[in-house]
Simulated scan of single mutants.
Amino acid sequence: MKIVYEGGEAEIVEKKSRFIATVRPVHSEEEAAAFVAEMKKKYWDARHNCSAFTIGDHHDTSRCSDDGEPSQTAGRPMLDVLLKEDIHNAAVVVTRYFGGTLLGTGGLVRAYQKATQEGLQASQVIDRKKGRKLLIGTDYTGMGKIQYLLGQRGLQILDTVYTEKVELSVLVPTEQMEELEKAIVEATNATAQLSWEEELFFATIEKKLQIL
C-alpha cells in the first residue's frame, strides 16, 4: 500500500496564476481538517485553498473541496490523482493566487491535477507492507540452506545471534509467510525452530528496511 511517508511542497504557474501544492500524511478526518485549516491560515491572502484527502486501507474516507472554484474543477481532480496513484492516508491542499487570466474549466482541472502530481513528486511516497518477524533457530549445518532460501526471496536478515546454535530474525511479508515456512521445514528436515512474532508494517526507505 502506497502512503506518504514525508510530505512535500511544489509550485506551478499557469497564465500567471500560482498553484502551490502542499502534501501531508494524515490518519484521520480530523487530522486532515486541521491540515486544511492550517494551510488556509498560512495562505490567508490567496483566492482559493482547494483540498482533497483519502484515508483508510480501502480509501474508506475521501473528501474534496473546490473552495470557491467552479464545481468539479479543483478538489475532485486533485482527489482523482490520489486515487489513480492509489496513495492512502494522504491530504493535499492546492493554493491558488489568481494571475488575472481565466483558465476555463478544462484549464483549471489540468492545473490542479498537475500541481497535485508535482506535490506528490516532491514528497516521499513509500510502499508500506504488512508482515511478521520470524525467529529461526538452526544448527550451523542448516545456516547455509536458510540463507539461500532467504536470498532467493529477497528477504533481509535483521539480526543474527551466534551461540551453540544460530538464531536469525527475518521480516517476512504476509503473502510469503506460509510458503517460506514450508520451504524452511523441507530444507532442514524439520530441524529448524520457527517462531512467528507480532504483525507489523514495514517499508524500504532509502534502500534500508524500516519498521513503521
Rank of each mutant, 00 (worst) to 15 (best):
K145N: 09
K15L: 04
A34S: 08
G99K: 02
N89G: 03
D66G: 08
A52Y: 06
L79R: 09
A203K: 03
T54N: 02
A52N: 07
Q147D: 14
S169G: 11
G137M: 05
A52Q: 04
A33T: 10
F19Y: 11
Q121L: 13
H59K: 04
G107T: 05
E9S: 14
R128K: 14
D45Q: 06
K84Q: 15
H88S: 10
T191S: 13
K84Y: 15
T22I: 13
W196H: 04
Q121S: 12
S28W: 08
E11L: 12
S195F: 14
F98S: 02
E198G: 00
L212W: 12
R24G: 00
I126C: 03
G75M: 05
T101F: 03
L102G: 03
R76W: 14
A37C: 00
H27T: 12
L155I: 05
Q121A: 12
V13D: 08
G119E: 06
T95N: 03
Q147G: 10
A111N: 02
R24Y: 09
I205P: 07
V4K: 06
L103R: 04
T105L: 04
I55D: 01
D80A: 14
G144R: 11
K208D: 14
L171Y: 05
C64E: 09
E178H: 11
R153E: 12
D80N: 15
H27C: 07
V36M: 11
P25Y: 03
E167D: 11
T174L: 13
K133W: 11
S71K: 15
Q124F: 09
Q113L: 00
L149V: 10
D60W: 05
I126A: 05
E164V: 09
G104I: 09
E11I: 11
Q210G: 03
N189E: 14
R96Q: 07
E11F: 08
I211A: 02
S169W: 01
T163V: 07
D57F: 15
Q193T: 13
